[in-house]
Design a protein around this nucleic acid. Structure first.
Lengths: 255, 255
DNA sequence: CGTTCCATTGAGATGTGTCAATTCAAGTGG
DNA sequence: CCACTTGAATTGACACATCTCAATGGAACG
């Protein structure tokens, strides 16, 4: 959020010309160890830095890539929010991931050399592009980088397993509570408030992500408000009783 | 199935002493390109072979590893069936994966250096153990191996995304149809019948895997039988009308 | 300022879960 | 080899969470 405002302030809404220094190096990136929290030594970081490409920010609703696009890079969110989704063959959308600053996505494309999902910005967002071919070569030389990348992918697998469990075993209230806690803890990691934040996605997207209808999402949020667990005002969320929320979630939403 | 019988025939049920050559090299493994369908050149394959450990078969219901166990290796199924599952904090089980011969599992453990799920044999099974430390070192030297391993993990991510979509968007009938098609096509890959096979798991496990109750699984299988799409006799399945099954699934279960 | 999309709320429909009873299959021990 | 035990599978009746449909209100954006 802060990042987004910053960008908007600097170059406005329409003008894509801007003075913000996109080329800030990995070393100086405010996300610090969040993104590639590497055991990378500083000379290794320099090498990584040399292959990272920092592009112009994406506007809201802009696609970064689409399902079936040729795969060439993985991406790190620098600011904003990215959602990834795939289409069922009858054309419905299923959101498969939600990525906040410091988080990496796009690894799904490696296996078939084509993306298995689409990625779009939910708000004005900046991403770092890491060309996979370069990353591969560099991983070949830098053991720590290879290791780190294995870990990143493994983590993606683990998190998807959590989502599978959530979808399979938990009811609407539990799913939504878990999502709130997940966003909260990811905010906390970025030194933002764990109890007060703006939802990065619409009710529609939340429903889609959690396998619920919009109406159910709306009703559950209303109920959590009445229970004085949350304070909800449009997309602004305040967690009033985090303990209660954790009980409702019944899941350990680690991250 | 064939593999299992072979093993049982050779050394019987009780005796764990056996004459079967567990040490068959990757080169000679009947699974051939299924397991590590590598672009590995034959000298590279020799190197891989040198780090693979082939253990005694697991008996039915035996665990290979458990959630939170220290991570040290990934595994390839040589024969039999392995399921992976995690426990929700209220102690319920969620199956997260089902692995048939030639398939690789255990990659979830890399990120935290501890397994995030448990793995157990659904029938007598043999697995190859690939110590991760060695694999890492070897990947460092053999570019093709690193590439292949990235692809394996990416594929796991993609397949989990498919499961997420299935759980989130499809009803009981569609989920079960999709599972039948998945098993069918994976059998076909191993040159087994695509239309006739033995279910590798109980109704309970199917329900668990697909987020359904046992009763629903039973009813849907009954319905598919009445519709003459399947012939079901205990665990023996015959696909009578694969076209209809695909329509019911409404999903492209590629693999 | 109007258009459009998002969100809320209610009423009713329905797929799936739960509970309970029964049958069936497999493995165990006498 | 036959009871016996145990877990798996089936089937029916009923409950209920969530979806669907519909109407309305509200926010956002050009």
């Amino acid at each position: 959020m802060i990042n987004m405002e910053e960008i908007n302030n600097v170059h406005g809404n329409s003008s894509r010309k801007c003075t913000l220094n996109y080329s800030v190096s990995c070393n100086d990136c405010r996300l610090g160890t969040l993104c590639f929290p590497l055991a990378l030594k500083s000379d290794e970081l320099v090498k990584l830095d040399s292959i990272v490409q920092r592009g112009m920010p994406l506007q809201k609703s802009e696609h970064l890539f689409r399902e079936k696009d040729r795969f060439s890079s993985i991406y790190a969110v620098r600011s904003g929010v990215i959602k990834t989704y795939r289409l069922t063959d009858d054309g419905r959308e299923q959101i498969t991931g939600l990525y906040l600053p410091g988080e990496i996505f796009g690894m799904d494309g490696i296996s078939l050399n084509a993306h298995s999902c689409s990625a779009l910005a939910l708000e004005t967002s900046a991403v770092c592009e890491i060309p996979f071919a370069s990353l591969e070569v560099l991983s070949q030389k830098v053991q720590n980088l290879q290791r780190h990348f294995f870990q990143l992918m493994s983590r993606e697998i683990t998190e998807e397993q959590q989502l599978i469990t959530l979808l399979s075993k938990n009811n609407a209230e539990e799913r939504i509570a878990a999502l709130m806690l997940s966003i909260s803890s990811r905010n906390a990691q970025r030194k933002l408030s764990a109890t007060q934040f703006r939802l990065p996605m619409s009710r529609i997207d939340i429903g889609n992500y959690l396998g619920l209808s919009v109406e159910t999402v709306s009703r559950v949020l209303g109920r959590l408000q009445r229970l004085k667990v949350l304070f909800v005002e449009n997309r602004e969320i305040t967690i009033l009783d985090i303990k209660a929320l954790q009980n409702l979630a019944g899941v350990l939403v680690a991250e």
